[in-house]
């Protein structure tokens, strides 16, 4: 284990602790939803980090196809895996939040549907990688799929949005000042930073393990 990786791990742990303190200690109880709103501090950072992860997959895939650098392929592989984990957390916490708030675990609402499709696409990506034995071929095919998948996400998003929606508009991504109490925003930001650190830690570790795997089996 490299020292940089270890430092990243400790930072992520620290950030998560701070995030918990912010979510439960500092942020006030929300007026209409009650304490169940505190799930948001998991739910929103998870999906933002997942988008980041899949963006990294796209960039790394393009770089791999361009110069065939094995490092880019490992980064794409690791990032996709971590992104799927975070997407899973987003979907699960969303369902748990939806039951008391909307009155249903699941509904074919736009955001829920498009995120779950994204989840399935990247699960397929990992499946493809797992099913091809030749390392170099797996890298090439996965890179193509990584590009198609990333370009498909906006199409999925809008098509499903037109299809039906119930989810409230994203609060943070809206132009202008967010209609949120500053304390909520601060708590959200702390958690987002913590999740980013965790993403960095997981990805760095996974990339190193993939490299070692190749060295051992080469």
């Amino acid at each position: 284990m490299t020292s940089r990786e270890r430092a990243l791990g400790w930072l992520a742990g620290l950030g998560l602790t701070a995030g918990l303190v912010m979510a439960f200690g500092v942020a006030p109880r929300e007026a209409t939803q009650g304490n169940v709103q505190r799930i948001m501090y998991l739910h929103v950072p998870a999906i933002l980090v997942a988008y980041l992860a899949f963006g990294v997959v796209l960039v790394a895939s393009v770089i791999y196809l361009w110069g065939r650098a094995a490092g880019a392929d490992r980064l794409a592989h690791a990032s996709a895996e971590v992104g799927v984990v975070f997407t899973g957390i987003n979907i699960a916490t969303g369902a748990i939040w939806g039951k008391p708030t909307w009155g249903t675990w699941w509904t074919w609402d736009a955001r829920l549907t498009s995120v779950s499709i994204m989840f399935v696409i990247y699960l397929g990506y990992l499946l493809l990688r797992a099913m091809i034995e030749d390392r170099e071929r797996a890298a090439r095919f996965a890179a193509v799929l990584g590009i198609v998948a990333a370009l498909d996400i906006p199409l999925v998003h809008f098509s499903v949005y037109w299809w039906r929606t119930l989810h409230q508009p994203p609060t943070l991504l809206r132009p202008g000042s967010p209609p949120m109490d500053p304390t909520f925003v601060l708590a959200l930001m702390v958690n987002l930073a913590a999740f980013m650190l965790l993403y960095g830690y997981f990805t760095a570790k996974r990339v190193r393990l993939l490299r070692q795997e190749e060295e051992v089996f080469a």
Binding site: G34, L42, A92
Partner: peptide, 20 residues
């Protein structure tokens, strides 16, 4: 408005389980 602490606990517990 009920607080639904059990749901909050379930969400954080599940996330901890997945990440862990």
């Amino acid at each position: 408005m009920p607080d639904n602490w059990s749901f909050v606990l379930a969400a954080y517990g599940l996330a901890a389980l997945v990440l862990g």
